[in-house]
Amino acid sequence: MVTETDIEKLALLARVALSEQEKEKLRTDVEAILEYVSDIRKVSGGEERAVPSLVNVMREDGTPHEGGVHTETLLSLAPKREGQYVRVKKIL
């Protein structure tokens, strides 16, 4: 059972705004999808946690490129900037 409060909590956690209408639609959708995927709980075997077969790939610290060569390209994409900084509203 998914309540409207659940949806509101999830939306805040995920930082997405929802209209009242969307909340109700998503509540029923999420409930139906969760019911569908709950099937996987019926599967037994592999009881112990699966050990991932993938490993981390590390590289030595180093200088991949000259400092500043990509700065302008990347900063020019920011909606708000001030000189060499991305501008945001104050946090505290």
Binding site: I7, A11, A14, V16, A17, L26, V30, K89
Partner: peptide, 27 residues
């Protein structure tokens, strides 16, 4: 404020299916 920037940007910028999956994933 900054939190509202996030919430409004993502609420406006993502369509219904993207938000549905984001919520499911968060759940």
């Amino acid at each position: 404020n900054l939190l509202e920037d996030y919430v409004q940007t993502r609420g406006t910028g993502f369509g219904m299916e993207a938000r549905r999956r984001i919520l499911l994933g968060t759940y």
